[in-house]
Design a protein around this nucleic acid. Structure first.
Length: 468
RNA sequence: GGCGGCAUAGCCAAGUGGUAAGGCAGAGGUCUGCAAAACCUCGAUCCACCGGUUCGAAUCCGGUUGCCGCCUCCA
């Protein structure tokens, strides 16, 4: 079996074949850091992190690069409003980005290049486009000559004339053609700027990704990813710039995630209906937010609501409970089970189904369903009077693997309880032994108020954190 | 106007030619001192609507309706 993925370029699922065997070069468009990220920004971070984890799980050596746009109009505006330095604002929200995405289980990229660290490469890139006739200077700005690039529109599957017909783009006097887009912007007075052959200015939005991809990954990469709304014009323009210069295909596979909606409408900063990750994770365990995201296929739109998050929380709890019950049994019971092989075969068949699901365009919704089947199978095993340690361990290992790919935590942190609580639990065990159920129930209620939920099992009493 | 996506049980969500996964919610039962957790049983005679292709369609084709998105900064 091989991995199939939906390529926006061809609008169909294709078999994944990396350029270099066993290696994957992957680039994900990152955020413009002028504010805390909202959950719509979090989705690509999460789903492409999952894609990366899955590729690693399948044995690929993944070189994963994701950028920060740390200078542009919005940051400059934000800096003015906050009365702070542009770079300070960028720095602050880059830190916030790491904090928020880490909470959501997103691993850091191998490289997180910034525009401001890529300036020489960006300028060189533009210079060469000018030299090749694909770009021209106009009053301190530099524009890309879109119509000169013959394959323009290949990603959005639009003819250049349709694009122009539908364009509500104003024809700037500086541009030769309304479809031309800016590579270099002349600085206004007192604005943050870099020196260039065309005077002081800063890069346009699209050029940074072309330059960074080339610098960090090369002229042709395996996977280029981002939100659906980036496919046009951002990705289309990236292709135009890179392929005009390199005369090579920029990326073999383009993948785009669907939106997160609020009340069925796209969440965006301009619609002012966004929810910040920073805020939502105060209300819900970030693991729940992650689980909610991976529980749907990455290309489907998902609607964000309290009802859905609560359901996701319960669902995740079910997985964790089974994991804990399995771990508890492993620790507390003797190694007695027979028939170990048939149970292990069941576990392996779940693993195969999990891989099958993820191989099919990273269908994590199905992968999660397989995980729930494994939960059920594990629960059935726990119903057995006698269990084998090796089988219990196999269940845990399988859960760990699946959880790694999906980026969710199923293992609870080792935690010690207050001595006082420990004593109460001890006292209750004694009380139950002596059939003093009234006292036992009193203690259980008391602990519940403290957020400690007790469960009596044939292997003894265990506790977990619950709602206070 | 151009391009695209979606419409499956109370809610969410897979399935994309062979007779409807999974989760949440709900009902009944088993286990338990009681709980909790778990287990068992129950739910769409049907996949927006209308035609067509096929031995067979939620799945393919044509059309209709509704919703959403891109074409402008946006993940």
């Amino acid at each position: 079996m091989t991995i199939q993925l939906y390529n926006t370029l061809t609008r169909q699922k294709e078999r994944f074949e990396p350029i270099e065997e066993g290696k994957v070069k992957m680039y994900v468009c990152g955020p413009t850091v002028y504010n805390y990220i909202h959950i719509g920004n979090a989705r690509p971070a999460v789903v492409f992190d999952m894609v990366r984890r899955y590729l690693e799980y399948r044995g690929y050596d993944v070189h994963y690069v994701s950028n920060f746009t740390d200078v542009d109009d919005k940051i400059i505006k934000s800096a003015e409003e906050l009365d702070q330095d542009v770079m300070a604002v960028a720095e602050r929200f880059i830190d916030a980005y790491y904090e928020d995405t880490e909470a959501l289980g997103v691993k850091k990229a191998d490289e997180h290049p910034r525009v401001t660290d890529t300036m020489p490469e960006i300028i060189a890139f533009i210079e060469r486009l000018v030299a090749k006739g694909y770009a021209y200077e106009s009053d301190g700005d530099v524009y890309f000559r879109t119509r000169k690039f013959e394959n323009y529109g290949q990603l959005s599957h639009q003819s250049i004339d349709d694009l122009q017909a539908g364009a509500r783009i104003q024809v700037g006097e500086k541009k030769e053609d309304p479809l031309d887009f800016v590579l270099w912007k002349k600085a206004k007075d007192n604005e943050i700027a870099w020196e260039s052959p065309w005077g002081n200015g800063r890069p346009g939005w699209h050029i940074e990704c072309s330059a960074m991809v080339k610098k960090h990954l090369g002229e042709t990469i395996d996977i280029h990813a981002g939100g659906q709304d980036l496919s046009f014009p951002h990705h289309e323009n990236e292709i135009a710039q890179s392929e005009a210069l390199n005369e090579k295909k920029m990326a073999n596979y383009w993948i785009h995630n669907g939106y997160i909606n609020i009340d069925n409408e796209k969440m965006s900063k301009s619609l002012d209906n966004f929810i910040l990750v920073h805020d939502i994770i105060k209300q819900y365990d970030p693991e729940i937010v992650r689980f909610f995201i991976v529980n749907a296929h990455y290309r489907s739109p998902i609607n964000f609501s309290d009802e859905q998050l609560n359901a996701a929380g319960k669902a995740l709890e079910r997985i964790r409970t089974t994991y804990q019950n399995t771990a508890h049994r492993l620790a507390e019971s003797a190694d007695l089970g027979s028939d170990a092989d048939s149970w292990k075969e069941k576990i392996i068949s779940h693993r195969e189904r999990f891989i099958e699901a993820m191989d099919d365009d990273f269908n994590s919704a199905n992968a999660v369903a397989v995980m729930f089947d494994l939960v059920k199978t594990a629960n059935l095993y726990l119903e057995e009077k006698q269990t084998a340690k090796s089988v219990l361990q196999s269940f845990l290992d399988e859960f760990d693997d699946m959880a790694f790919v999906l980026g969710i935590k199923v293992k609870e942190e080792e935690e010690l309880l207050d001595e006082e609580i420990e004593q109460l639990i001890e006292e209750r065990v004694e009380a139950r032994k002596n059939r003093h159920f009234q006292r036992a129930d009193e203690i259980r209620d008391l602990l519940k108020e403290k957020g400690i939920v007790l469960e009596d099992t044939p292997q003894g009493t265990r506790w977990k954190r619950g709602d206070v």
